[in-house]
């Protein structure tokens, strides 16, 4: 959870710095049990061409970071992060999806029958918890979303560290002699830049009371 929040902060800061996309992000905010939940349309981040990637039988990861940023400011007032793991089951021919966010750090599992359903699921980001209603800015604000497709996850980073520290173990041909240089290199391996498959979105401006009235689009 701490790592997730750290990633959220870093991502939000990056998002705040980056320039917004030309088309405003279609977003709706609504109150729910004293908290603000947003629904976002992220379909621009998931074109039809992504079927080839998401259906390759490997685990694909989509990280979605949403921040509430007061207009004219760059510091986010609220943050939300969601990590979606997608694995196409080549036998069942279904998409096994696991969604992890602060409310469900262990993940909520879904099985989606086809890419269309997956695309819908990813595009319509619902239940984005932006925190208590009273924590929203008292001034006009907007939502910024950052979607990273297949960023290097901590698990991937860890696996890579183990691999370069002990490359022989990966081949399963020898007893796994550890490489000193590799061990040091694995220790010094840092998280890479997010890469090029990053999508930034910015919604239109919301009035301070918009969340209470369920405003959107």
């Amino acid at each position: 959870m701490r790592h997730l929040l750290a990633a959220l902060g870093a991502a939000a800061a990056l998002g705040a710095v980056a320039a917004g996309p030309p088309e405003p992000l279609a977003a709706r905010v609504a109150p729910r049990a004293g908290r603000v939940e947003a629904s976002l349309d992220l379909s621009a981040a998931f074109p039809a061409a992504t079927e080839r990637d998401f259906g390759n039988g490997l685990t694909n990861v989509v990280a979605i970071y949403v921040s509430v940023v007061p207009d004219g400011s760059r510091a986010p007032a609220a943050l939300y992060g969601r990590v979606v793991e997608i694995l196409f089951d080549v036998w069942e021919e279904t998409y096994a999806v696991t969604v992890k966010d602060p409310r469900a750090p262990q993940g909520v599992h879904y099985v989606l029958p086809d890419f269309a359903a997956l695309r819908r699921f990813l595009s319509e980001a619902r239940g984005v918890d932006l925190g208590p209603v009273q924590a929203l800015p008292g001034a006009p604000y907007h939502l910024e979303a950052r979607v990273e497709v297949n960023p290097v996850s901590r698990e991937q980073l860890q696996r890579t560290r183990e691999y370069i520290a002990n490359p022989a173990a990966g081949t399963r041909t020898s007893g796994g002699t550890r490489s000193v240089l590799g061990a040091v290199a694995s220790f010094l391996l840092r998280e890479p830049d997010p890469g090029s498959d990053v999508h930034l979105f910015r919604s239109r401006s919301f009035a301070p009371g918009a969340a209470a009235s369920g405003a959107g689009r």
């Binding site: 685990t59 290097v152 980073l157 890579t160 370069i164």
Partner: peptide, 14 residues
């Protein structure tokens, strides 16, 4: 495949 994908993504950093 996922390992190689990760290593490939981390190539410069490695």
């Amino acid at each position: 495949g996922e390992l190689v994908q990760g290593v490939d993504a981390l190539r410069s950093e490695i």
